[in-house]
Amino acid sequence: MVQLRHGSAHPTPAVRRTTQRNQASLPTLVQRHGLDSKTVVKRRRRTTTQDAGMGPTPASAVLTVAKEAIAVAFRLPTLRPLDDCLYALQATIPHLSRLALHRRFQR
Rank of each mutant, 00 (worst) to 15 (best):
D36A: 03
A91F: 05
H6D: 11
A100E: 06
Q50E: 07
R17M: 08
L29F: 04
T12I: 10
R107W: 14
R32F: 15
Q3H: 14
T64R: 05
P94W: 03
A61S: 14
G7Q: 06
D51H: 12
D83M: 07
L101E: 01
R104V: 14
C85Y: 08
Q3A: 15
R43L: 11
T47G: 07
Q50W: 10
R104K: 13
T49A: 06
P94I: 00
I93N: 01
G53M: 11
L29I: 06
Q90F: 14
L29V: 08
D84Q: 12
R21K: 08
T28I: 15
Y87F: 12
R16P: 00
L29E: 00
T92N: 07
D51A: 09
F105H: 04
D36Q: 01
T48G: 06
P27A: 05
R75W: 15
Y87H: 12
A14V: 08
L79R: 06
P77E: 10
C85S: 12
I93Q: 02
R17Q: 08
H6P: 10
P11E: 13
Q106N: 08
L86H: 10
K38T: 02
L79W: 02
I93R: 01
L79N: 07
T47R: 14
L35Y: 03
T48D: 08
R75L: 14
R75T: 15
R98M: 09
L89D: 12
T12M: 07
C85D: 12
A14I: 08
K67Q: 15
T28M: 09
G55W: 06
Q20I: 00
A71Q: 03
